[in-house]
Simulated scan of single mutants.
Amino acid sequence: AARVEGGGVRVEIDQEPGGTRLRAYAPDLTLDLEIPLPEGHESLGVVVPWGPRRFQYTVKDVGRPVHGRLVLGGAEHEVGEGAFAVLDHGRGKWPYSVVWNWAAGHAPGLSVQLGGKWTDGTGSTENALFVDGRLHKIGAELEWVYDRSDWLKPWRIAGEGVEVEFTPFHEKISRTELGVVGSETHQCFGHFGGRVRAGDGSWVTLDGLTGWAEEARQRW
């Protein structure tokens, strides 16, 4: 279990063998979600080495079912049909300054997870395709091409076995500047297109997947 509270916001995460429960509370907001772990569901765990005494272990768990409710401004919204959850677990020690890209998308029976920049040159990647819950690891480093002056233009993500285009429809910006500590994230939600090669060499099209692609710059 994990709990955090501050600035009028409280978040509670309970992890059990059968799934995860996520609850959050803030002024005019209540979120209560159940995120079951289907039998046979696979996820990608990667150790990224930066040196003999510094590493980051990350698990990106894409395409989990989710159901529950969101109460916002007194209006209740059901979370369920058509929704999916992505869980991001990490352990380790980050460098003071780091930049990463991360994209995740899902449709029934198909998910994709793509990353870059922060793993470049380490020999590790966090890229994978999931077909009917089974993991197909992608070992290639990827090139991310996007317009930092217009985040809503199409993004291109490419490398050996990866030919992906991402078309955003919404941008979420998060910024914090506290002197030596700072953060800026541009997270764009949108639709995926293109194709990714599975472990058996066949190409799998991503048309119809919905999710996000982001750039994050951190000093911490």
Score class of each variant (00 low, 15 high):
Q187L: 13
D207T: 14
F189H: 09
G211R: 09
W212H: 12
R217D: 10
G190Y: 02
R197M: 10
C188L: 11
G194H: 07
A216Q: 15
G199H: 06
T210F: 13
W212T: 09
E215P: 11
A198G: 07
R195S: 05
D200Y: 11
G199I: 10
G211I: 08
D207W: 06
H191F: 05
L209R: 00
R217S: 14
R195P: 01
F192N: 00
D200L: 12
L209H: 00
G208W: 07
A213T: 04
S202I: 06
E215A: 12
G208C: 10
E215M: 12
R197Y: 04
G201Y: 07
R197K: 13
G194F: 05
W212M: 15
A216R: 11
F192A: 02
A216K: 09
E214W: 03
T205H: 12
A198V: 04
A198W: 06
T210D: 06
Q187C: 11
F192Y: 09
V196M: 02
S202G: 04
G201E: 06
F189N: 03
E214S: 09
S202A: 13
A213V: 06
W203G: 02
A213I: 08
L209D: 00
E215Y: 09
Q187N: 13
V204S: 07
G208M: 09
D207C: 08
L206Q: 04
